[in-house]
Design a protein around this nucleic acid. Structure first.
Lengths: 196, 196
DNA sequence: CTTAAAACAAACAGACTGTATGTATGTTTA
DNA sequence: TAAACATACATACAGTCTGTTTGTTTTAAG
């Protein structure tokens, strides 16, 4: 059995990220050792350190993949919505649904900040989900559905934090809490739109 | 020089928590070793492990002290406010101002979740600042300043996350961003009140 | 076919955590 | 007040983990 170098690399990285996601999500960053990861991925620790700078670097790769997954879920959710305000609401629900997976939760909201570093994590975040949110807010402002004088950056930050926390508190879990969070979210956006 | 046991204990714990706050806030939980802490506090590592179960237990004590500080800042801010909606707004600003200290920030919002564990941290949080927020929301509902059918738990969770994130994004830092976040916060609460 | 480079594996050094053992200081009681 | 005890503190140790270094195999290129 002979594989090209590119294939070997892709296969090793893929396996390490896949296994890393599972273990980091289950036992946390500190509770997951590099021997554990290497063994579960069926490679040596040396290979891990060949493909990633250190343990945090692997974690970082897992986080990026995770944000891409969320981003896709949001996009999927809003493809058939046109009203800017409804895009914000539906996109948010897509985010909550996708991020409510316990593994995502722990990686992104529990360990993420401490491992990647608050600012650095937010920079990844700001390129994906939060960027979508901000664009959505600005579009709604342009369309006159949200007050034009509202500072978009500040509102984006707050609402992004609100969504993250809703997920962390388990409001995406069962049907009653999904209903409650849905009500709260719609009220926040509708309330703002009343000020336009 | 002879001290009573109670005094010795109080002094050692106080010093360890004080030094712990500073070091955890500066270098993070993982970047702060127990030898560092013991040395800076002028005690032995044995003493640390005598007073606290482990490193995380000391961190937990630091977090609790920190939440009490925030709680006090909020209470201070709302003593002379009577309108339930204004209490929510002013209390929130007090929170942001107090939590914007970089050391608080890192301990509570960056390392806190991963060390104490998402759920466990929230339980401390829920007994202090978030509890205040929830009571404020319910009071505003009773007074007819917020919609009575709004699910208080969900809204509390979201707004609590919104405030935390505003702090983390540095909106308590300089005057322009303080102004922006102030605008966003007022808009959120006023918008909700329009639905009442 | 030989040589260079990439991928992988194994061995090593340093650091840290938590514990076990030992000492000193304070507290209770006979 | 002096022995018995408990609490506070200090030191030494065992095990584990991380990141690096050194060595081996596999692929790519001349």
């Amino acid at each position: 059995m002979s594989r090209t170098n590119e294939e070997r690399t892709a296969e090793s990285r893929r396996k390490l990220i896949e296994v890393g996601r599972k273990l980091f999500g289950e036992y946390g960053f500190a509770g997951t050792s590099t021997p554990m990861i290497a063994q579960a991925a069926g490679v040596s620790r040396g290979s891990l350190y060949h493909h990633f700078e250190d343990k945090a670097d692997l974690f970082h790769a897992v986080v990026e993949a995770e944000y891409e997954r969320l981003e896709a879920a949001i996009d999927e959710m809003i493809t058939h919505v046109s009203d800017p305000l409804e895009i914000l609401i539906e996109g948010g629900e897509g985010f909550i649904a996708a991020a409510s997976d316990p593994i995502s939760q722990r990686i992104l909201f529990v360990d993420g900040p401490s491992v990647v570093g608050g600012g650095m994590l937010l920079s990844v975040d700001n390129e994906t989900t939060t960027s979508s949110l901000r664009l959505g807010i600005e579009a709604a402002q342009t369309a006159g559905r949200l007050p034009k004088d509202l500072p978009a950056a500040a509102l984006t930050s707050m609402m992004s934090g609100a969504y993250d926390r809703a997920v962390l508190d388990g409001f995406g879990r069962d049907e009653p809490s999904r209903l409650a969070i849905r009500h709260a979210i719609r009220s926040l956006w509708y309330g703002l739109s009343k000020l336009a």
